[in-house]
Write a protein that binds this DNA or RNA. Sequence first.
RNA 1: GUGAGCGUAGCUCAAUGGCAGAGCAUUGGACUGUGGAUCCAAGGGUUGGGGGUUCAAAUCCCCUCGCUCACCCCA
Length: 429
Amino acid sequence: MAKKDLRTYRGMRDFLPGQMRRREYVFSVLKEVFEAHGFEKIETPAIELWEVLSGKYGEEEKLIYRFKDRKGREVGLRYDLTVPLARFVAQHRSELVFPFKRYQMERVWRADRPQKGRFREFYQCDADVVGTSSLLADAQIILIIYHGLTRLGFKKFLIRINSRKLISALHRKIGEGDEISLARAMDKFERIGREGVRDELLARGFSSRAAELVLQSMEFSHLKQARSFFGEEEGIRELEELFSYLRAMGIPGDFYAYDPTLARGLDYYTGPIFETVVEEPKIGSITGGGRYDGLIGSFAGVDIPATGTSLGVERIITVMEELGMFPPELSPPAHVLIAHFPDTREEALKLASNLLEGGLKVDVYCGEKGLRAQLGYAADKGIPLVAIVGEEIRRGEVSLKNLSTKEQKKISVDQLEKYIKGLYYSEFK
RNA sequence: GUGAGCGUAGCUCAAUGGCAGAGCAUUGGACUGUGGAUCCAAGGGUUGGGGGUUCAAAUCCCCUCGCUCACCCCA
């Protein structure tokens, strides 16, 4: 038989138990944060009809995995969680409570070329508020980004904030060229600098007069400067209102900033836009989102305003791994391993069933090897305690070994559950 | 789509143009109440694939495929 190619498909990964524990930790923290702010979880299918996915992403559309099902129906793997949400809301309008606050933690697929922090199959954690154009919703989204990242242990990050309306205003002001093209050039400011953007604009066919205006508008670090440049502009008023909410929410000022160079490529954004960057390591943005008041209407027929963000869990995990941000003790695969000998197996099974009843995570050694092997198993798997069920069980006792302190003591079976729980409250927590 | 670097055992990696190797993992045995240890043994390779140079290629050259990183864009 020819040897099988054992690799996973490009850009798609297996997750080993050790990795899964770190991933689950991130997911559980974010879940708590979402729910702390009143967001409810939903799920949607991996596959959507092509007509749902098409025409929503602009140039990005070529990265959607697209195929025909067995009856020739055009379908695609979802590219993000926002467009499926729009379809979902349009379909279930009558059953939802508005403003509808939902979160989702699911896989999405992009036929992209993988690199650091970029995959073809990856998870996104999205939180959105649907059915209100109030900037309170945008502020709440920014709050959960702040809350989520700080809860995960991030000490330093910046949520950059701008408005699609200001990019449109700038585009009207210069009166030439294509808005998306303008936005793309501006978005490169961080990487290629002031002169780089000038060259980029000229290369994209903008006049040098236009380039000067654009460069001028990108110098602003405060909304006040933008106001004197743009005048009474809706985008300015909105950002001022948004920032007043962020202050009231108590988000420290060095975690967010008006950033006129932020553009964001997706076509559907209509109002405030935001993304989060970290200085180290270099990995692009770790969250991205904004207001998209027209998207759901394209499914529902009537306009339903919405805003939200996607937290890039894959990049968040990459950053946390590189910076050693994971807590040293994640929850163990089991609280205790039950070790046993050929003549104590039935007692071991009874003990395990009692401990399970008490709510502990119990791993009964499933092999028939000796104690040495069973202790090695617990050590390799990261189970901190081993209850050795040997001849002492005849006297109603087991030997409980703590693998980290190497201490071992005999404990009566009646006391065991309480004793283990006590250890987890003091020592392991 | 563009560019650079790298492809040797399941994994991590050695081998000056001159016999393809080690550690880990796997399998079998010794040992069976204290961290799969220790000891003994075994299996495992078209050196990514194809072509060329050479007495001789993992090693040099060409093509191709794959992976990684960067660009584009994005989480």
